[in-house]
Nucleic acid binder design. Structure first.
Lengths: 259, 259
DNA sequence: CGGCGCATTGAACTTATTCAAACGATGTGG
DNA sequence: CCACATCGTTTGAATAAGTTCAATGCGCCG
C-alpha cells in the first residue's frame, strides 16, 4: 500500500533554460515551465535516493513543463491517446474507470508526489479518467523521452520499474480489501493509508482534510456512500476518530489498526 | 482484462549452447535448459510482434533455464527475495496474497504464456505466493539481465513496460468487478475472461476445464464458495452454461455477456 | 468398500443496500 | 442581510444480497 511516484519540482521555481528541448502534446496545453526535480520539495517522495547530479540534470531535461488543472477538470480521459505520465506537484486527483453499462469506480486517490497515467502505456491510450479533486498542478513527463532516459541511466530504469511494480502491489492490496474485508475494516484501512501518506509528506498523520465526497470514497471502497457515512459515525461514537464532515482527526491509531 | 505476458520456448526443445552465460538463483533450482523463445509455441502470447532475429537471439541468452513445479507446490513465496520473473510454459498457477490476520485472497490465475512475479520488483521481494494448480513448467527470466537487455533493445523495453502497464490495467478491471458487480456478474465476467484467454491460446473458447476449486474461485471473485456454486447452478438452470464440476461448456455466449 | 476432498443445496442469519426524510454548509440573488 | 436553492451528509426503516451453518451428494484413490 505504499505510494511510490515520480518526479517534479518546486512550484515556485522558474525554469532557467528556456531554450531546453521541450516538446509536449497539444492535449497537455496550457503548460508552463517547471522548476527542477533536483530542488523539488516532493523529490524524496518521487525519486530514488542516491541519484547523482548528472542524473538529475538529465531528468530536468525530460520534465520541463507543468500544467494546472482546476478542481473538477480532467487531466486525461479514458480513450484519449497516451503520451505522458504525470506527477502531482500540488493538489490531488481521483482516477475513475468506467464500465460500458455506465457504472464507474474510483481506483485511486493521488496526492502531491504521486504519479498518474501508467495505465496508458499498455496500449497507448488512457484507460481511465483522472479528475482533480481541488485546483492542482502536475509535472508532465513525456513517456518516450523518459524511456530514452531509462535506457541510458540505470538508476532511472530501476526506479520506473519499481514504480510500476509498486502500483501492481498497491492494487493487489486494494483487491484484498475489496474481496475480503468488511465495510468497517475497509474504512479503517483507508484512514490508516491516508494517515501514513500524509506523514510521508510531512503533514500531520492524525489530522487531515479529505478532498473526496463520501460517494467517491464509497466507490473507491466498494460500498455505498450511506455505508461510508455510517462507518464514520460509528468510529466517532467509539472515539476512534473525530470527524466533522471531511476534516478527520484520528484519536486512537492503535484501535483503528485493530479494525 | 487482457493478459499480456512474456517469453519462453517449446518445452521439448533442447538448449543448444550449454556454455552460454546462465546464472540463476539457488532458489530457482532444480532447473533445466530451455529451448528458444524464437521457436516457442507461446511466442505470440508473450512477445511483441515484429521482434527481429537479433532481438530473439539476445532474449534466448537471458532466458536459459526452466523449472518444473508440481501441483500444489510454490514457484515463489511472499517475503522471499526477488531475482527473476517467470513465464508459464506449461500448466497454470494461482497467486495468493496474505493478510497479517490470516485471511488470504487469490489475485490471479495464470495460464501458459502468462508472466508471474512482477510484484517482486517493487522492493526486491515477492509479495505473494505463486502456487501451481497442476504440474507445470515455467521459464526463468533473471530480472537484472532482462533490465540490461531492455536498456539495449528498445522493443524489449517497450514490451516490458507494456506488460507491467497491462498488469495495472488488468488489476483495475478486477477492482471494478469486486467493487461494483453482483455475484452473478462476476462469475459471468470470469467465465468470459477465461473463454477469451483460451481462444487466444488456440483452445476452444466454449469448453474448458477449470483448474481451481470453487473456494479458490470464490476467493478470486470476492465471494464464498457456496455463492460461486449457486451461480454455476443458476447459469446451468438458465441454460447459459453446462457445467459438470470443473468442466465448463458455454452454451450461450451472448446471454452470458448480457450478465 | 470406505474415506476424503470437493461440490451442491437448503434454511436461518448477517450485512450492506435501498429508499426516504431531514439536516447543515455554502453560495446566489433579491 | 436574509431567503432560498443546491449539494453533500447523516440517520432510520424496510429490503435484498450474500454468508453461515449444516446436511447431503458425488467422484476418485487407496
Amino acid at each position: 500500500m505504499s505510494s511510490s511516484t515520480f518526479s517534479l519540482s518546486d512550484a515556485g521555481a522558474a525554469c532557467p533554460g528556456d531554450a531546453r528541448p521541450c516538446a509536449t502534446s497539444a492535449a497537455d496545453l496550457p503548460t508552463e515551465q517547471s522548476g527542477r526535480c533536483s530542488s523539488c520539495a516532493m523529490r524524496n517522495i518521487c525519486m530514488p535516493a542516491g541519484l547523482d547530479a548528472q542524473a538529475y540534470a538529465r531528468l530536468d531535461e525530460v520534465i520541463c513543463t507543468s500544467r494546472r488543472v482546476a478542481r473538477g477538470d480532467s487531466l486525461f480521459r479514458a480513450g484519449t491517446p497516451f503520451h505522458s505520465i504525470y506527477a502531482v506537484r500540488v493538489g490531488s486527483f481521483k482516477t475513475v474507470v468506467a464500465h460500458p453499462d455506465g457504472r464507474q469506480q474510483v481506483t485511486r486517490f493521488d496526492l502531491a508526489g504521486d504519479a498518474l497515467g501508467l495505465d496508458g502505456i499498455h496500449d497507448d491510450r488512457h484507460t481511465c479518467d483522472a479528475i482533480a479533486l481541488e485546483d492542482s498542478v502536475v509535472c508532465i513527463i513525456p513517456f518516450h523521452r523518459l524511456e530514452t532516459l531509462c535506457s541510458e541511466v540505470r538508476a532511472m530504469q530501476r526506479h520506473l520499474h519499481k514504480m510500476m511494480s509498486g502500483e501492481i502491489v498497491r492494487e493487489s492490496g486494494l483487491m484484498m480489501q475489496l474481496g475480503n474485508m468488511r465495510a468497517d475494516e475497509r474504512v479503517a484501512a483507508f484512514l490508516l493509508n491516508i494517515s501514513q501518506r500524509m506523514k510521508a509528506r510531512g503533514y500531520s498523520p492524525t489530522e487531515f482534510n479529505l478532498r473526496m465526497t463520501r460517494d467517491e470514497l464509497g466507490s473507491y471502497l466498494g460500498m455505498k456512500l450511506e455505508t461510508v457515512s455510517r462507518m464514520f459515525s460509528r468510529f466517532q461514537r467509539e472515539a476512534l476518530i473525530d470527524a466533522r464532515g471531511r476534516l478527520v482527526r484520528i484519536l486512537d491509531l492503535e484501535r483503528l489498526k485493530a479494525v
